[in-house]
Design a binder for these strands. Structure first.
Lengths: 373, 373
DNA sequence: GTAAAAATTTAAAACGATTTGGATAAAGCA
DNA sequence: TGCTTTATCCAAATCGTTTTAAATTTTTAC
């Protein structure tokens, strides 16, 4: 065994709060041209200028042309905070980031950013970092009533998600990334987790596997339930008895993938195939399989769900990993799109989108070995 | 070889822009109590109430007590957009998210969120997604002048980073996560990349390694240069000739880790040790080493830099991975802290923080094998 | 050529807070 | 007590837009 040596600890200091430094109007050093001034330079009234820039019809095309051109030339841009105050719009979509800091998060966000690039809308990541039920509700409530966002995106919903009821009651538009069974009408975008896992499981059964282990997401979340359902359906269709000892729930980490996989492989007879919840989980499963002196793709088949990350691809694993695949980035982009539709008045009840999931077979899946165990 | 089968494609529709639906004051369904109303209920003037809530000294403690209590009871909260307009503060810190969507991003953000939880400040992720130099400047400029943020955080700086000059010129407070060599004074928080890699490399040399390959970050970025410097220094100290054929630059993906490592291992004599830029890179390196029928920790030593991710840990790799380690989450939290200090008036020139990096030795590093090549 | 209709433009009133510059009440001092 | 100082509180101005309601100009219709 090698030496375990810690040479340094890093130092994290503390700091004073953001105190009031100077009273009086603060603001940035940058001083913009104001509407009044700009209008005067154009020889127009502020009203006309405002309308011209906002694209209202009461202004002649010739004037609008001139106004927009001059705005660029003189560098006039409306003060966003004044606009927000008077219109009541915030120009931002809220996303709540949990303390756990999921690695999927940035991929989804990046997709959103891609779509919002052309709009004048920001993403507000709200540091509502508390965990757990009650407090979390309070925090969503604060976000919704804070006036900082025009809409909110809810992630990882549960079948009966209080956040949905809450936001609906508060009249805050929101999109659920995932699904819920609440009666409350709500817009959602989800991938077909049930179908994906059903197909993956069926395929494994087709290959002769009978003991198929399933490493699912956190218990209680809708997508975990859907995946569970798909898994059970596939088994039931082929008359295979469901075995609760072959199912586990938890965060998508390599650590849990490893631990769960190991505990499954210790069983006798051991499973001959795994359905893994994420790429990280799959890494753990691969490691566990190897630690038993077994070979993925020959002794043990593995299918994992892949959200398509640029930094970790199924094709590159050894052996290459069979996956159910759906682009999280695309989902992020489309989510942003749907939120914009929501804000432009499309009723939430019309916004339901279920994406099919690809099943891509690679080297990690194969026929069940002749003499298992 | 297994079948490669695509069963479905997902469908991404398009959508109309966020058009003007109804004119007239929009706003949310939620109608808050207003200051005037609230003040009247208390029998006080708006001025006093405002001051009481903002913590100014001109109000008696007794009154302040009453005001804050009643505010909670009656649910009064100042309209944030009115506050923003009048104070000129935005109550948000801006972060620009590149189109590439680094996996490290969410960990850093999560750290920021942790620190900002107690403050009334948001993180604004600006969908300034364009790539490349010129355009990116424009986009930073827009963010800085938009009035949407009070400060900006710059990531992955270059030694002579235009963004720094730009933000300084615009008078927008900012913190550099990383370092730069610009003359422009600026606040920064960085880890000691040079020292970390110097130490890692030295350690490998101590173990007898002479051909040490280095998979670095993207070329031109300050931290890549620092790491390069540390690497070269370590070699120079021991009189080992620097070999440019043993150095590569690129994004931190398993793919590049694999490809670079393979190309190095094809050389003769081949390297006996690797310094890898990130955990993902390390995954690729492990894979490449195995693909040559070699064993990490015996034939080939590997040290990688670890930003401490909850979902992928060095201890769990097989063999466990020796790392230079520094918590990105902690850096995020501290960054938020420093930005708050900056906003409260602490001069940028005083805010320079260099964090030492741990070197943690595990199983992936060992003495150079007797008959290499 | 004039009246009515349509197309432009505008002055002034919001939006909801903070801050200025005073006013009032309470406390301190001779 | 009377005067000054200090501790509280307040009315009105301000932040920079959008929107209302009304005024002007231009076009159309007869």
């Amino acid at each position: 065994m090698w030496q375990f040596e810690v040479l340094h600890d890093f130092v994290v200091g503390s700091a004073p709060n953001w105190e009031i430094v100077q009273r009086g109007r603060a603001g940035n050093t940058i001083d913009h041209m104001k509407l009044k001034e700009f209008a005067k330079q154009l020889g127009l009234s502020p009203t006309t200028v405002s309308r011209a820039l906002s694209g209202y019809p009461e202004v002649s095309e010739k004037t609008r042309q001139r106004v927009t051109e001059e705005a660029v030339r003189l560098g006039y841009r409306p003060n966003i905070n004044a606009v927000r105050l008077v219109t009541g719009r915030a120009g931002a979509i809220g996303v709540v980031m949990g303390r756990s800091g999921e690695f999927q998060f940035s991929e989804y966000m990046s997709g959103m950013a891609e779509r919002l690039d052309s709009e004048d809308i920001d993403i507000l990541v709200s540091p509502l970092a508390e965990q757990g039920g009650k407090n979390e509700n309070q925090l969503y409530s604060r976000l919704a009533t804070s006036g900082r966002v025009d809409a909110v995106i809810i992630h990882s919903p549960m079948p009966n998600d209080e956040r949905i009821t809450l936001l609906h009651r508060l009249g805050m538009p929101f999109l659920v990334h995932g699904r819920s069974e609440t009666q409350v009408p709500h817009a959602w975008l989800d991938i077909d987790n049930e179908g994906a896992i059903r197909r993956a499981t069926s395929h494994l059964i087709d290959l002769g596997h009978r003991r198929i282990a399933m490493i699912n997401g956190r218990a209680g979340l809708t997508f975990s339930l859907h995946r569970d359902k798909g898994y059970r359906e596939a088994l039931a269709q082929r008359g295979i008895q469901f075995d609760p000892h072959l199912v586990a729930h938890g965060h998508f980490t390599d650590e849990l993938g490893f631990r769960f996989a190991r505990s499954f492989l210790e069983q006798s007879p051991r499973p001959t195939a795994f359905v893994a919840g994420s790429m990280m989980t799959a890494l753990g499963v691969y490691r566990a399989v190897r630690s038993f002196g077994l070979v993925v793709g020959r002794d043990i088949s593995v299918i994992a769900h892949d959200d398509v990350f640029p930094y970790l691809t199924a094709d590159n694993m050894v052996p290459s990993l069979s996956t159910t695949r759906s682009s999280l980035r695309a989902a992020g982009a489309r989510s942003a799109d749907l939120v914009l539709q929501l804000l432009s008045g499309r009723p939430a009840t019309e916004i339901h989108e279920l994406w099919p999931v690809e099943l891509i077979l690679r080297e990690s899946t194969g026929p069940v070995p002749q003499a298992p165990g």
